[in-house]
Amino acid sequence: MPTLLTSPFLAAWRRQKAATRLFVAVAALGTLMGGLGFLAWQRFYPVTAADGWSYRVVLDGVPYVSALARDRQGLLYVSQELKNQRGSVFTLAADGARSLVLPGLSKPDGLAALGDGIVVAQEEGDHPVLWLHGGKAEALFPGRNVEGVAVDGRYLYAIEDRAGDGRLLRFDTSAKVLTVLRDDLSEGEGVALCPDGQLFYTEKGKGWVKRWRSEGGDELVLGGLNAPGFLMCDDEGLWVTEDATHRARLLLLDHHGGSLQVILRHLRSAQTVLSLAPGRLLIAEQGRGRVLEVERSPRRRE
């Protein structure tokens, strides 16, 4: 007579338990592989351009590439957004030669042409906004985690990337007067001036872009964005990059029709946009350590 230990019921129970364990292990492995596959897809999926647009890599192998600007002579300035005074700004000649022009910076994340030089902002800590000209770096005004900068000739605009107490600033380059235009901003990153004088800024922490109004009550123009970062405004409209690790986009808010167009998809930590000519621009893609040239197809040019 079979005992409890040799019972066919016990054997069947053991087989069922082993099968359950195997099923759980296979399911866990499948979930893990699926998760890894999704992460790999996000990381390696190539950038795609909208119909009528194309892109190409013009500069590669630049870790933490961030800000872009051109001086009066058309020389391109590029920043590397490293922390703890390891950041730098270098120039890129037409033949591809790089020249270091300003080392020892803490997350240089904003560049803009001013007069015969370039404005440099530092996002990490309390550092002055600098004006690099004549081979020297001149301090213009103190800032706290200053990121985006924009210039209209007389005025220099800057925004601070701080959690809840950031400011939108205007510096009069002639009178040397600093004015706070807005305060209590959440992760302000981008600021842009349009040819018609309109001023826009982003709050990455709130996922929106606003138009500044002198009387207050700034207008929300875009919301629900995926970590909106840098802004650039030209005759075509307002360009917005998303500073997200995966699936970031380059957006264009058309001035004429008011429509929002997605120009590039699947970017990684998109940063500065720099206009070169109508329908042609540069964008720094920090997540892949490179700079892309984006261009409208000839048949779409106006």
Rank of each mutant, 00 (worst) to 15 (best):
M1C: 09
P2F: 05
T3I: 07
L4C: 13
L4Y: 14
L4N: 12
S7L: 14
F9L: 14
A11I: 08
W13G: 06
W13F: 14
W13E: 12
K17M: 15
K17D: 13
L22V: 09
F23P: 01
F23D: 01
V26S: 07
A27D: 01
A28I: 11
M33Y: 10
M33R: 10
L39P: 01
F44E: 09
Y45S: 14
P46T: 10
A49N: 09
W53T: 02
W53H: 03
Y55P: 00
V58L: 06
L59C: 05
L59A: 15
G61T: 03
G61E: 03
V62G: 02
V62T: 03
P63I: 09
Y64C: 04
S66P: 00
A67F: 04
A67S: 13
L68H: 08
L68I: 13
R72V: 12
L76F: 13
Y77S: 12
G87R: 05
S88W: 03
S88I: 05
F90P: 00
L92R: 04
L92S: 00
D95Q: 06
A97Q: 14
R98H: 04
G104I: 10
S106R: 08
S106C: 10
A113N: 08
G115Q: 12
G115K: 09
D116M: 06
D116W: 08
Q122N: 11
Q122T: 07
E123F: 03
E124Y: 04
D126K: 12
H127E: 09
L130H: 03
L130V: 05
L130Q: 06
W131S: 00
A137R: 07
N145A: 15
V146M: 04
E147C: 11
Y155T: 03
Y155S: 13
Y157W: 11
E160N: 05
R162T: 03
A163N: 01
R170Y: 05
F171V: 04
D172L: 10
T173M: 03
K176H: 15
V177Q: 12
L178D: 01
R182C: 05
D183H: 13
D184N: 14
S186D: 02
E189Q: 13
G190R: 02
V191S: 07
L193G: 05
C194L: 06
P195L: 04
P195W: 05
D196R: 09
G197D: 13
G197P: 02
Q198W: 08
Q198C: 10
L199K: 04
Y201N: 12
Y201H: 13
E203D: 12
G207P: 11
W208S: 08
K210N: 12
R211C: 12
W212D: 06
L220K: 11
L222A: 15
L222N: 11
L222M: 15
G224T: 06
G229P: 00
F230Q: 13
L231F: 14
D234Y: 08
D235A: 14
W239V: 01
T245A: 13
L250N: 00
D254R: 12
D254L: 08
G258P: 13
S259L: 11
S259K: 15
Q261M: 08
I263M: 04
L264Q: 02
S269F: 04
Q271R: 14
Q271S: 11
T272G: 00
A277H: 03
L281C: 07
L281K: 05
L281G: 00
E285A: 07
Q286R: 15
Q286N: 15
R288T: 11
R288I: 10
E295Q: 14
P298E: 06
